[in-house]
Amino acid sequence: MKRSSVITREIDPASLINEVVSPQCGAVSLFLGTVRDANDGRSVSAIEYSAYKSMAEAELERILDEAEERFGVSVLVVEHRIGLLGLGDVSVAIAAAHPHRAPALDCTRYVIEEIKKRVPIWKMEHYADGTRDWVDPSGAAQVSSV
């Protein structure tokens, strides 16, 4: 059972755990990404996430297929939230279940690293001083806006 969604509602980590837990699996690995209050020396007040939703969901499905092939983890759920998120809000949740811990742990790590490389989702950080900026982890020039 694999499932991935890009959603606007709050992520409920407990419901993801309930979705993957089973008597056949001795390990559940849960990764949560949350909104941090600072980035690159600037004080962050919120993050606005946007996506090319249909492609983001297609890319997430491809990542889950790869994860199953690499780690043998077939019980895997991912939710990524978009919209305006406040400090501490969960932006992404990945839950993986497997009979043993190593594949479950490796799988969640793989999925989050691939999300960061390939899933078309963007962040606009809102700063405490009232300015905003696109987050560009690639280091290319940023477009500033106010």
């Binding site: 996506a51 932006s91 960061k116 078309p120 989702i121 963007w122 962040k123 560009d136």
Partner: peptide
């Protein structure tokens, strides 16, 4: 067709 800016999910 779409142009994809540097992604920043997670």
């Amino acid at each position: 067709i779409a142009l994809i800016p540097p992604v920043a999910g997670g």
